[in-house]
Structures are given as structure tokens and as C-alpha cells.
């Protein structure tokens, strides 16, 4: 399932592996921009002292609504694009849990876990954000086009919007702090590639799959392949 890596324009240099192709990076940063915009305008709408500071409630609300309605667009466009093969494959990887993920979750067995491309925290985060997009869009639409809904549904939508917003703030702050605690990983969301050494240490199962993609996924071939990377399509 990894063959489409070759079609990307990002040809990794020797000693590096492509982690996020261009489409994935563009989708990520579009999402990031929209999420941050929504979180900041949402905070201004929600926190009295910030509302007091900023004012212009109607304008802030309009920005929030436009950003909110646009929120699913980058992901959906990325998923249907021809160049979205990497994204589609990673969505699959994010949603499936392997036994090593369970091992990683327990402190006692964590050292033995051979992680794939994503660790369980990343999987949970991605899953939560994807669901949050749906819930926030639905509840936000009810709040904005309130005329079509009963009183209780409107209050319920506000309730769901509020608590999911708390979840989003927590997870996004967590996501950003994890990114800054691992600069190599963060850089790969800008440049696309990680050094093989990073992949080998942090995501061994993925590393094996990348370097070994022309053979059976389960073969023990890391020593041979580490010395002769196969993915120099240039």
C-alpha cells in the first residue's frame, strides 16, 4: 500500500525518508490555520474579558463562521485529489490499531513496542480532531441558523460546542507542545522528510516498511536496507 510514494514530487535525499508528502503538508497547515483562527475567535466570543478587549463582536462572529464552514474543506479536497494517496493511506494508518499500539500504551511494555508510522497518541488526536470537526460543524450550524431549531436543541448545540471546544483546546495545545518537543518531527511537517535514524528509533515498523517496500513487509531486512535506501527515485 506504499507504492504511491513514488509519484510524489518530494524525492527524499539519501538517508532520509518521506514522512508527509506535499498534499499532506498543505492539508495540515490549512487545517492548522483554520483551527487556530477558530480557537482564537471562539475564545474572544466566549471569554468576557477578551470580548471586552476586542469588541467588534459581529465581525469576530463572521470570521468564526466562515472559518468554521471552511474547516472540512482542506481534508475533503485532499482526500479526493489524485495526489491525496499519501493522505488516504495515512488516514487508514491513523484509524487502525496494531498490537504494538496497545503495548506502547502500557508503561511496562512500552519499550518493546515497535510502532508503525503513528503512535497511539497521534492516532487518538487525529481521531478526536476528525470527530470534533463534525460535531463542531453540526452544533455550530445549529447555533448560527438557529431559526430552524427548537430552544432545547439550540441550548444543546451550545452545550456540545462548549465542551468539544474545551477538548480541542486541550488536544491542540498538547499537539503543539509535543511537536516542539521533537523538532525533527516538527520539521518533517514543513520539509516532508525525516532522517532514517529518527525513523529507525521512533517508528521502527514504519521504517522497515519504507525501506523494505519491495519485499514482504515482515522480512527482517533492516541491516541491508539501512545501508542502501531504495527510495531515491530521482
Amino acid at each position: 500500500m506504499t507504492t504511491d510514494l513514488h509519484v510524489t514530487t518530494d524525492a527524499p535525499r539519501p538517508g532520509t525518508i518521506l514522512r508527509f508528502d506535499r498534499t499532506e503538508r498543505v492539508v495540515h497547515w490549512c487545517n492548522a490555520t483554520l483551527f487556530i483562527t477558530l480557537m482564537l475567535t471562539g475564545a474572544v466570543l466566549y471569554i468576557g474579558q477578551l470580548s471586552a478587549l476586542v469588541g467588534r463582536r459581529h465581525l469576530v462572529e463572521q470570521i468564526h463562521v466562515v472559518a468554521g464552514v471552511s474547516l472540512p474543506i482542506p481534508l475533503l479536497v485532499g482526500l479526493v485529489l489524485r495526489s491525496g494517496a499519501g493522505l488516504r493511506r495515512d488516514v487508514g494508518a491513523l484509524s487502525r490499531w496494531i498490537p504494538d499500539d496497545r503495548r506502547w500504551l502500557h508503561r511496562r511494555t512500552r519499550a518493546r513496542a515497535q510502532l508503525g508510522k503513528f503512535n497511539p497518541g497521534q492516532k487518538l488526536n487525529a481521531t478526536f480532531q476528525a470527530a470534533a470537526i463534525v460535531v463542531m460543524l453540526a452544533s455550530g450550524s445549529i447555533m448560527y441558523w438557529f431559526k430552524f431549531f427548537t430552544n432545547d436543541i439550540r441550548t444543546g448545540a451550545t452545550f456540545a460546542h462548549d465542551w468539544f471546544a474545551f477538548g480541542i483546546w486541550l488536544t491542540v495545545i498538547g499537539h503543539i507542545s509535543f511537536a516542539f518537543s521533537d523538532p525533527v518531527s516538527l520539521r518533517s511537517m514543513v520539509r516532508g522528510v525525516v532522517p532514517e535514524s529518527w525513523a529507525m528509533a521512533k517508528r521502527p515498523r514504519w521504517y522497515l516498511q519504507q525501506t523494505n517496500r519491495d519485499t514482504e513487509p515482515d522480512t527482517e531486512a533492516d541491516t541491508k536496507l539501512a545501508s542502501e535506501p531504495t527510495d531515491i527515485s530521482r
Binding site: 491513523l94 484509524s95 487502525r96 490499531w97 499500539d101 492516532k123 487518538l124 487525529a126 481521531t127 478526536f128 476528525a130 470527530a131 470534533a132 463534525v134 460535531v135 453540526a138 452544533s139 445549529i142 430552544n151 432545547d152 436543541i153 441550548t155 444543546g156 448545540a157 451550545t158 452545550f159 456540545a160 465542551w163 468539544f164
Partner: peptide, 22 residues
């Protein structure tokens, strides 16, 4: 497919929140 289950579960939670949040 744990991710899919968690995803649908969370959406269900949101729907319950909208329905019974008041």
C-alpha cells in the same frame, strides 16, 4: 479499526450532547 469506532463514538457523544444538552 479502533480509530473508526472512536470516531463514531465521539460523533455519537456530540449528537447526544446536542439532543440532551439542554
Amino acid at each position: 479499526p479502533v480509530g473508526r469506532r472512536v470516531f463514531l463514538g465521539l460523533i455519537g457523544l456530540g449528537a447526544v450532547g446536542i439532543a440532551f444538552g439542554a
